[in-house]
Design a binder for these strands. Structure first.
Lengths: 146, 146
DNA sequence: AGAAGATGCATGCGCACGCATGTATTTGCT
DNA sequence: AGCAAATACATGCGTGCGCATGCATCTTCT
């Protein structure tokens, strides 16, 4: 089954390069305001959550170490986009939520980012292919979790 | 065509998360010896090239800034895996090639890495799906280049 | 040939990251 | 109740990165 492994490596390299290339396009883009992609990622995660999130929860969602998240939140707090609220059921934890300006920024940057994503992704793939790609990627990591 | 953009964003998020998740698995893995993934990336690029590569060429291949590549090469040089050779046709350029030990390390780490990739990728996807994923990713970035 | 701009690479600097560790709080065991 | 282990977060420290910049060399134009 050597060729199965070879195929797996080709798929990984293609996946890796595709993500790096697209992400690279975003890095320098103007759409982020004064944020960087990962900072927007935190705002986005908060925007989809039902309530304030723990720092460790954000770590899992944004794929950042806990100390890194701790500092990232401090930066966004300094910018006035986030605020910490204490968890009533656990005095060790501190939950994070967006301020009004944070929500405004998230919507604004999110809209611009979505347009940019749409432009890059639909440039190369049609509807069916996008669906297929999405499903394959989800299946790929879905299997790892279990 | 709003739903087309929505689909594109779902596909991007899935692609992004899949790559980050899999790459995250590699970060901490033991397979790399004393290298990090990006350092192996340089050795791999050199292993597939017909001859010594320029620093700027490696930048494009490994998706790293030119100063970053300059230092990365210096580190690998210190480890004895790489050496610089001067370009006969351009005295500004310095080309890079692997030492014998570099080639040995590349093969060794490459084999271990390939096994790991195979394990993670084939865990979630079968043959046809891997092929499909590879082709979709290649098509996605292929379209951006032109 | 000579000057002006482009190109290839290296270095100073500030920043964000991960790892190791510290402190406070909670949980579990007896 | 009381102590040990686990958990949540913050901080010190070292390192790699990108940006701005500098130096050397090549290219182009006149």
């Amino acid at each position: 089954m050597a060729s199965r492994t070879k195929l797996a490596n080709e798929a990984w390299e293609a996946l890796f390069r595709a993500q790096m290339t697209i992400a690279g396009e975003f890095e320098g883009a103007e759409e982020w305001g004064s944020l960087v992609p990962r900072e927007y990622g935190v705002l986005y995660a908060l925007s989809t959550a039902p309530g304030p999130l723990r720092i460790t929860e954000l770590c899992e969602d944004v794929l950042l170490s806990q100390p890194g998240m701790s500092r990232l939140i401090a930066r966004l707090e300094d910018k006035g986009l986030l605020e910490r609220v204490e968890d009533p059921s656990d005095a060790r934890a501190s939950r994070v939520r967006m301020t009004a300006e944070g929500m405004r920024t998230q919507r604004q940057v999110g809209a611009a980012h979505a347009r940019e994503v749409g432009r890059l992704m639909t440039g190369g793939l049609d509807r069916d292919e996008l669906t297929e790609l999405r499903d394959l990627c989800q299946k790929l990591i879905g299997a790892d979790d279990e």
